[in-house]
Design a protein around this nucleic acid. Structure first.
Lengths: 282, 282
DNA sequence: CCTAAAATGTAACTTTGCTACATGAATTCA
DNA sequence: TGAATTCATGTAGCAAAGTTACATTTTAGG
């Protein structure tokens, strides 16, 4: 279910004359619309009340009050995401808000679409693996490094690599029981795709986190396919990296929970080991 | 303005008998409440309609419909964040949602509280710097590495370091024109605090991204102080790392915008340079 | 136990939104 | 081109929802 305001904007050209008027008034000031009565809104749009009512029903509401409710919801989750592309004449506050909104929006999208069943299955693989390798290049190298950091706390040997040659060597020497976790936003990085294929030919488990339908996704046994829209061409892929990190958080959490309660003291011990490196809390 | 549901929960003990009944019904199923009429709700709570009305006004609404509107909004932004701590008996779907919500929530908090003025000032420093170092340890090392990746695209020399000795050496050899960007969630890592002090004594610019009022924050000239609540003791600091990354995104964007339009082709060129490493888009 | 204030309910009234129907515009086909 | 049909829009009345003023009940203090 997309954002109501966006839906209205999209449908705008296909609307009747009076419906267009209503849409215009609502899009102009949605906040005000949520607080108007149907009579007020009809007056503002110079249409009759039933026209407004019909408009509401057209967009899936049961009536005007229900429509206002949906609109209010859309305003909270949605209005901030409108026109999120950073432009050169943005003020600091504007672009900062946009950057945050992009990430928040991307996370919401993935949260609402990620398959729990797939997460469970990948967690299964991670738990069963004898050894885990995280592979990524470019920005995804940092994600892979982060994953290593997260997973080393379990007893399974884990490492991350961002050197294509190293990746290839490891993939060719791997086999059953090894898990190769390949991270790529585009899923089109040649060397990584080839590495994934290589690992799979050797009988290793290959998991990908990448774009839907991409060559990398096809090369993997399990692939977490994320459709993150980057609305910035000039700058770096930012949203996808954040999403990757959070998905890995979810996977690490899944593994932790699978290991069960008796594993928690182990984690606490690791945490305690850092104490002496810190200033005390006052 | 806090979340309406939280406000009601908090006020619960101070309410009248009938108001308590109303509150109970609403808290029990807020979603249903947004769709009920005042009569239905009054019936469910076994109170009279005006009691419900009074309840609404008590919580700042102009009347029942307005209250429903606010409730609907609160549901979007709020209800998902309730009880976000992962527990051992969570299903995959539950903990996945929670993990995402934690990050989303943390980002929203920071988005609403970050000072644009401070961002501007830090961007100023980054633009002016002759050389930039990103320092982090542990999880923050990955953040620092990511920052290096983002900032190397500008013409300023930049590097990231996660070795405390290396950090110390660089800090002691740095001076005016060098910018040391220190990242630490807790702000209590001894070696990093000392490194920051050292760099500052030598006349370098020292920027921190850390917890408010922490030793590191005090040691830095400029500090981006982020109060991210980690609601997980056993697992890793996740939310803060995500927030750090997004703040760095914002800073990098700020630098890009400051460099202005003539800088965009440069970024495009970097992007193009990756083309040959990829499979073509079909 | 009585009084005053607070809390709650009752009933009348106002506003709101909806439905059925009528009118007007537009489109199609002879 | 003009009649017929369909679609779009408005009018009016009605039903429901919400609000206000007031009455009754409950509670607390003396």
């Amino acid at each position: 279910m997309e954002n109501l305001l966006a839906t209205i904007s999209t449908a705008l050209p296909n609307l009747n004359k009076s419906e267009k008027k209503v849409a215009a008034v609502i899009l102009d000031d949605p906040e005000a619309a949520t607080q108007s009565s149907i009579a007020t809104l009809a007056l503002k749009a110079s249409v009759s009340e039933p026209s407004v009512n019909r408009f509401c029903k057209r967009f899936g509401a049961s009536g005007f009050p229900d429509f206002k409710l949906q609109l209010a919801k859309a305003l909270v989750s949605g209005v901030r995401y409108v026109s999120s592309a950073v432009s050169l004449d943005d003020t600091t506050d504007e672009f900062t808000q946009k950057i945050f909104n992009n990430s928040i929006h991307a996370l919401s999208q993935v949260r609402d679409n990620i398959s729990a069943a797939l997460v469970t299955r990948v967690v299964d693989q991670l738990v069963q693996a004898r050894r885990i390798y995280f592979f990524g290049l470019g920005t995804s190298a940092a994600v892979a490094a982060d994953a290593e950091y997260k997973f080393f706390r379990f007893n399974t040997p884990v490492s991350s690599h961002h050197d294509p040659l190293m990746q290839r060597m490891l993939a060719s020497s791997g086999g059953v029981g090894d898990l190769f976790f390949c991270i790529s936003h585009t899923g089109r990085t040649k060397s990584l795709v080839e590495t994934a294929q290589l690992a799979r030919e050797n009988g290793a488990t290959v998991v990908g986190m990448t774009a839907p339908g991409s060559p990398l996704a096809k090369a993997c046994q399990w692939s977490i396919e994320l459709n993150v829209k980057e609305n910035t061409d000039e700058y770096l892929p930012m949203a996808s990296r954040i999403v990757h990190l959070v998905v890995l958080d979810a996977l690490a959490t899944g593994v932790t929970l699978r290991k069960g309660e008796e594993f928690l003291p182990h984690l606490a011990r690791i945490k305690d080991s850092l104490k002496s490196t810190r200033f005390n809390q006052e």
